[in-house]
Design a protein around this nucleic acid. Structure first.
Length: 424
DNA sequence: TTCCGACCTCG
DNA sequence: GAGGTCGGA
């Protein structure tokens, strides 16, 4: 049977179908928040319009200066679009002050539609964690950390999402030894192959994220290998199976109630989940705002902007480096360190370099000569002590190269309060 | 504790 | 090599 083609919603053509929330851009920047690598399924469907799946529904979000606009599409297959998914699972979660207030303020009879609208608003607020006042946090981080302050003025509104733990975990298992564009394709194929279809907009079909049971099926590894997941195919299937076999369906959600370290260690027992992936899942879906995912990129940031060095010139990211850098940033930024980290992370992404003012990008030309380079190398070597001259040739070349690169991006602030070797 | 190679594919 | 993890030295 032929159904009417549904299109991606656009605010300019039909604003009355949209709903809105008051929300300043300093509290939320959709473009930065949805494209900085914490989630992989939101796409810019029209200029400034972001479409993705959340809570079993397809949404389009957009924003004007002080307003966040949202549009929720009907799922054709679930009774008239009023799918249960909206209502049931979020209900039991801890509700914020919001809902309590609502119950008191609305003693009159509410229709299904009104209830659905209230529900949608709550889900969106929850997903975006709008109860967290980002402006206040930025001020605190900036006061404690001049380098942060410098970056933060340009990269306002970078916010950590509160994602579904299953989607978050299995998406991040895909990230190992991988790059963003490929991860996006993989997650999309994963949903297409194993997720329930939701709706189609223009030429794009949207799917829900696969359930644990779907992922745990023994046929999944082969299926995903065919879809180009490589060795990750086995991790995905095995992790799903392990969760169901030894813990049960509700286990991931239950980790939200555990302290950070316990939740992280629990996640690390799963195949394909190391320290970094576990930290991502903790921060982005389990309410652990202090979790700081340390990857090679964050390590670079720590070295470049915070003078982090190891006493033995480490080449690979060890457990100790993870711990030291995480602890360092927690000490510097406090209990929302993971959120602050994401701001700097975002600011370092190549795709967002155009946001930095031109003046800074232009600088590097003059300082290409060698004087500075050797200085940096020397500083580092002072901490190593040991003569590693045999290796140092290629190493120092590498360092020099990296150093030149660094000069290019930016280099004018002076952080002096953390020049000691390792953070404790 | 730290290091290394292997693991998959592709922009 | 890419926003890692695992197993074995």
């Amino acid at each position: 049977m032929k159904t009417k083609m549904t299109k991606h919603a656009v605010l300019s053509s039909g604003a009355k179908m949209w709903r809105s929330l008051a929300c300043a851009k300093s509290e939320l920047r959709l473009d930065l928040t949805l494209a900085c690598g914490q989630t992989f399924r939101w796409k810019e469907s029209a200029e400034g319009h972001w479409t993705g799946v959340m809570g079993g529904r397809v949404w389009t979000l957009t924003q004007t200066e002080d307003t966040l606009w949202y549009y929720v599409y009907a799922n054709p297959d679930t009774q008239n679009g009023r799918g249960v998914s909206l209502l049931d699972k979020k209900r039991s979660e801890k509700r914020s002050v919001d809902s309590r207030m609502k119950n008191e303020e609305e003693p009159h009879v509410v229709t299904d539609q009104q209830e659905g609208e209230v529900e949608a608003e709550m889900m969106l607020k929850d997903f975006l964690q709008l109860h967290v006042k980002l402006g206040d946090l930025y001020r605190k981080w900036g006061a404690a950390d001049p380098h942060f302050k410098e970056i933060a003025d340009i990269f306002k509104g970078v916010r950590i999402l509160r994602q579904d733990p299953t989607e978050c975990l299995f998406s991040f298992i895909c990230t190992s030894n991988n790059h963003i564009s490929r991860i996006q394709g993989m997650v999309e194929r994963l949903c297409q192959a194993l997720g329930a279809p939701l709706c189609q907009l223009d030429q794009t079909a949207y799917y829900d994220f696969p359930t644990l049971s779907a992922l745990a099926d023994s046929s999944v590894e082969a299926c995903l290998r065919d879809l180009g997941f490589g060795y990750r195919a086995r991790f995905l299937q095995q992790s799903a199976k392990q969760i169901l076999d030894t813990h049960g369906l509700q286990w991931l959600e239950s980790l939200r109630r555990l302290p950070y370290v316990e939740a992280r260690d629990a996640l690390r027992t799963l195949p394909g989940v190391g320290t970094k992936v576990a930290d991502c899942v903790c921060l982005m879906s389990l309410n652990k705002s202090e979790a700081v995912p340390v990857d090679t990129h964050v390590w670079q940031i720590a070295k470049r902007d915070y003078k982090y060095t190891t006493d033995s010139g480490q080449k690979s990211l060890t457990e100790k480096i993870h711990r030291d850098i995480g602890d360092f940033f927690r000490k510097l930024w406090g209990p929302y360190a993971g959120w602050a980290h994401s701001v700097l992370f975002c600011a370092d992404l190549k795709k967002f370099q155009n946001l930095k003012e031109p003046a800074r990008v232009k600088q590097p030309k003059a300082e290409k000569e060698s004087g500075k380079k050797s200085k940096t190398t020397k500083t580092k070597r002072e901490f190593d002590g040991k003569g590693e001259d045999t290796k140092i040739k290629s190493e120092s070349q590498k360092r020099a190269k990296a150093c030149v690169k660094r000069q290019k991006s930016f280099r004018s602030h002076k952080i002096t309060h953390f020049s000691d070797s390792t953070f404790n």
